[in-house]
Design a binder for these strands. Structure first.
Length: 593
RNA sequence: GGGUCCGUAGCUCAACUGGAUAGAGCAGCCGCCUUCUAAGCGGCAGGUUGCAGGUUCGAGUCCUGCCGGGCCCGCCA
């Protein structure tokens, strides 16, 4: 199962070897300049090599030699030299036809299957007690897509939300709750069991308590001390506090499941930092035994700076001088946990790029401890979400935009657009709502995913809710048009034979060439952990399909049966690929819209 | 100060391993619904890739310096 691109790549590598140059010069790539579908650029470099050898051959002569070698190949229609020595490659229509049938019957739709690795992907970035807002969008959406890309390639991937539920933030919550409700049994040191099953707080309480405490502690050392003490007591195992933490976590998880569910994001594990707390004492013993820790100003650290290294990288901090554990510590303990329970080949962290240094420290320390090779630990960062002014996005009132509000904006906007178009008028109310939900969510996710990860992201509600051009809804539109044709074909008793595919029209050929690149796009997106590469591909396919749709009628009476059947198969193939690709991006399409 | 990411069309973004005339979408202009969904299709226009050097057949991409911006830099997570 090989794409046309890969086949040409092999052919040209062989050809370069045949005429005495390194095979790598024969790399073939897609050409997006409207000259030819594919091109090979190795002749210039080959010419350079010949010069060094003292037997100069001009680029165009190298290209001529290569062409001579590949003449009359059944997969090639035409080869020509362009510019200084570019080889333009035109595939034969037969090769496109063969490829179309192959794709139609490939259960992986052209996605190359890799040797399965066991992978944990840590994404979502959720915290206990903090409601989801726009800042949580990217990790969830990008992480989910990377998870699905890797699964599509055959890897075994476990997604872990890995909540922030440990450390000072919990101390803030506990102490703030104590100020509000001092008589709760959790705060009475004499009570050590039989705490109530019902949580004393709900999600709204938590969402209020945390910023309240954090603001109060900022300018008040005594208030901060209360939080620190509560943190330390929680971590040393005070039972009332532990019981309280359980409530905080379960209240938060319930809310998070709803939030992520609305985004179509699913986790296999709902672990958090608190889960690995019991592993910390033994881990510290182990690290001390391995002689990689040091005491420094009362704190326990691991130095991760290499000798003679210019980079000024601070040490990893295992224990604060107060004895409290920190973010570093729990991340290290999480690695111990993952090593023991899953022993994965790879751990991927989809976390804001601002934490790059943190992960560098943890990865180095884990490597020093001998747990993982540095190549096994990967930080997939992404840019921050800013407003139009380039600063972190704020609502008009200056606050953070809640995720639910964002979803509502998308939803309403999609519903309005649906009403304006008048198309959904025959659908019942619930179907219209469901379509609006899917359209809004597709717009949101595609807008997020199509950016290259690392660039900062400008959140512009106006642009997000426009459903024309390179947007999620454009892709859905292509999908539902195909579904509509297939439905009509069924009711007209047109049989889908999938026997032969014609491809005489250039729009049919262009569509097939676009479809052929799917496998490569998934591979590159997987290697680079970059869903935007797949977004680009899907958009190209949808574009090629729209052109085909406009140029090549299918159900019209005037179309001869064999051509009709062929075009129907091509439409079906496009649908299969679009649905798979959208699924990998985490985007759901309606049946009709 | 050190590190890191970035600077591409009016706006938002692409450009894989250094490849031809730097591509899309939006906004603007011109066409296309008696034919499978016009959330569509075709076309026009829009650029000194922040600046200056360097490497080479060839640079948005690699190197050096500068200008501008975001972010990070041991007891928050």
């Amino acid at each position: 199962m090989q794409s046309i691109l890969e086949t040409f790549d092999e052919l040209f590598r062989e050809a370069f070897i045949t005429i005495g140059y390194p095979g790598e010069l024969g790399g073939v790539q897609e050409s997006f300049r409207g000259i030819a579908p594919y091109q090979c650029n190795g002749a210039m470099r080959a010419s350079g090599i010949s010069k060094k050898r003292g037997t100069y051959v001009s680029p165009s002569d190298v290209a001529s030699l290569v062409i001579k070698n590949l003449q009359n190949h059944p997969m090639i229609d035409k080869l020509e030299i362009g510019g200084p020595g570019f080889i333009n490659i035109y595939p034969s229509v037969n090769s496109l036809r063969d490829r179309a049938l192959e794709l139609l019957f490939d259960k992986n739709l052209g996605i190359k299957q890799e040797l399965p690795l066991s992978i944990i992907i840590d994404y979502g970035g959720a915290n206990v007690a903090k409601p989801m807002h726009v800042g949580h969008l990217r990790s969830a959406v990008i992480g989910e897509s990377i998870k699905r890309i890797l699964r599509a390639q055959g890897h075994n991937v476990i997604g872990d939300v890995h909540m922030g539920d440990w450390g000072l933030q919990m101390g803030h919550l506990i102490s703030e709750l104590q100020i509000e409700q001092p008589n709760l049994p959790y705060f009475d040191e004499n009570i050590t069991s039989d705490f109530p099953d019902i949580s004393p707080v709900n999600m709204d309480d938590l969402a209020r308590l945390y910023p309240q405490a954090s603001a109060a502690a900022k300018n008040d050392d005594d208030r901060m001390e209360l939080s620190r003490t509560a943190t330390a007591e929680l971590q040393s195992g005070r039972l009332g506090y532990r019981a309280l933490l359980e409530h905080f976590i379960s209240v938060s998880v319930a809310a998070l499941k709803v939030g992520y569910g609305k985004l179509g994001v699913e986790f296999d594990l709902w672990k958090g930092e608190a889960c690995v707390d019991p592993l910390i004492p033994d881990m510290i013993k182990e690290l001390k035994l391995k002689n990689i820790t040091e005491e420094d100003n009362g704190a326990l650290i691991i130095r991760v700076q290499e000798e003679n290294e210019k980079l000024d990288i601070p040490p990893l901090m295992l224990l604060a001088s107060s004895g409290a554990v920190l973010y570093h510590t729990t991340d290290m303990a999480t690695l111990v946990d993952r090593k023991e329970t899953n022993n994965p080949d790879l751990i991927i962290y989809v976390v804001d790029q601002r934490q790059a240094l943190h992960f560098e420290q943890v990865f180095r320390a884990a490597s020093k401890a001998g747990w993982f090779h540095p190549d096994q630990l990967i930080h997939v960062g992404f840019g921050t979400m800013n407003g139009k002014d380039g600063k972190p996005f704020k609502t008009r009132e200056g606050g953070v935009l809640r995720l639910q509000d964002l979803l509502d904006i998308m939803n309403n906007s999609a519903r309005k657009r649906l009403e304006e178009s008048g198309i959904g008028i025959g659908f019942d109310y619930h179907e219209r709502l469901e379509i609006a939900r899917k359209v809004g969510l597709a717009a949101l996710k595609f807008a997020d995913l199509q950016n290259q990860r690392l660039t900062n992201y400008i959140f512009d509600p106006v642009r997000f809710t426009s459903f024309e051009g390179k947007t999620g809804p454009y892709l859905l539109y292509a999908v539902v048009r195909i579904k509509s044709i297939l439905r009509k074909a069924v009711s007209a008793n047109i049989v889908l034979e999938d026997q032969s595919i014609d491809l005489s029209h250039s729009s049919e050929q262009q569509l097939l060439i676009a479809l052929d690149a799917f496998g490569k796009s998934v591979s590159i997106a997987g290697v680079k952990y970059s869903p935007h590469i797949l977004c680009d591909h899907v958009y190209r396919v949808a574009q090629a399909f729209s052109r085909f749709y406009a140029d090549c009628p299918i159900l019209s009476e005037e179309i001869p049966k064999p051509l009709q059947s062929s075009r129907l198969s091509l439409a079906k193939l496009t649908l299969l690929q679009l649905e798979k690709a959208l699924n990998i991006l985490g985007i759901e399409a309606p049946e009709r819209m």
